[in-house]
């Protein structure tokens, strides 16, 4: 303990976690906002259940990847009681690491598609 958490320790991220971080990276959102964002972002493929959402939010909060934040000025008045979440610096770093990992994964997959086998160490 005491040492700085390494973003690499958190990857690979679970699919839900990745999408939640992606949603929050754009702008702070409340629970319902996250569900809508994830649904749109995944083109309707990922429909988060409320339970799954909050369970994941708790994990992310515990691991200090996200935090509660102030209500953004553009929020409607109906949103007054809602809590908003945003990624921490660590969260952003983890997201970057995960996206980077996936990019390399995709590159590797493309190589295979071109007929040149990637060399495995």
């Amino acid at each position: 303990m005491g040492r700085h958490p390494d973003p690499a320790d958190f990857v690979p991220l679970k699919r839900d976690a990745l999408f939640i971080l992606l949603a929050l990276a754009a702008h702070p959102l409340h629970g319902y906002g996250i569900i809508r964002d994830v649904e749109t972002r995944s083109e309707g493929e990922i429909v988060l259940q409320t339970g799954a959402l909050y369970r994941m939010l708790r994990r992310l909060l515990e691991d200090a990847l996200i935090e509660e934040c102030a209500r953004p000025p553009d929020a409607g008045s109906a949103d007054e009681r809602r809590r908003y979440y945003a990624p921490t610096a660590l969260g952003r770093a983890v997201l970057a690491a995960e996206v980077d990992r996936m990019a390399r994964l995709v590159r590797a997959a493309r190589l295979t598609a071109d007929g040149k086998r990637p060399r495995l160490v």
Partner: peptide, 20 residues
């Protein structure tokens, strides 16, 4: 502990989901 922290929010979200 979970209910205390997230219960109200969950209800709220479920309500919004239903309304929309």
């Amino acid at each position: 502990d979970f209910r205390d922290r997230f219960g109200a929010e969950m209800l709220d979200t479920a309500r919004a989901l239903d309304a929309d």
